[in-house]
Structure formats: C-alpha cells, structure tokens
Nucleic acid binder design. Sequence first.
DNA 1: AACCTGACTTCGG
DNA 2: TCCGAAGCCAGGT
Length: 116
Amino acid sequence: MYKTIQLFGIAENTNTSFHQRVKDIIKRIPQGKVATYGLIATYAGNPRAARQVAWVLHSSPRKDKLPWHRVINSKRSISLKPNCGYEIQKQLLEKEGVKFGKHDNIDFDRYLWCPY
DNA sequence: AACCTGACTTCGG
DNA sequence: TCCGAAGCCAGGT
C-alpha cells in the first residue's frame, strides 16, 4: 500500500496499517527528544498525512502508552491550546529536560529526534 | 453521499 | 518574519 522508508524494522512493514505504524514510531521517540507530526507521517510512509498523526494521538494515547507529549508541530511549538493540555504537555517535556525558548519554541537543533 | 472539522504543513504575498 | 489560503486525509454527522 504505502511506500515506506526503512526504519527500525517498523516502517517497512506494509502489512500493518498507517495508523499502527504511527503508534509504533511514536513509541520509539526517546525521552528528552521531540518529533513533528509531519516527520512521523513521513517515517510511517505517508508524508502528507500529518493530520492523521494528530488523529492517532487524539484517539488512544493513554491506552497505548504513547509518549504523546513528545510530538509537536513544525513551527517548533506545542499545538495544544492553553487550558486544553498545553500546560501539561509543556510540563512533561520540561521534566524530561527539554528547554523552551522565546515564544515557547523548542530548539530543533538540540531536541529534534534524529533516528539516523 | 455530501459536508464539516482538526493536537498539520507548505507556500506566496 | 508574519499571516492567510490552499492542500491534505480520515473520521464524524
């Protein structure tokens, strides 16, 4: 179905759904690092499915034990709105050592997850 | 089936 | 650098 890139022995598994691969990949994000929706979508095999990644997170982060807080948008900031999880996510990241700069941005050079 | 909506991204002005 | 529009895809109504 989707053409996928070779990554950790996960993304190349075309037998699993995009949805499932996204979850597998998110679980691989190490503590103290972050990834963007688009990046994850790309690793999962569909570069244009960033919104679906968001959907996956919205569905079952608790049940699947996903480190949902390590997923942010391409503008280097948290997508959640204040009083709707923003503070919680920021707190979780700071606890892992992620520092926020001006405008609550995260420095990709330091914290972006680079699997290669 | 049509239409709306979203924890997105990219590009042009 | 900063919006706004357009593109994108899937699930909900």
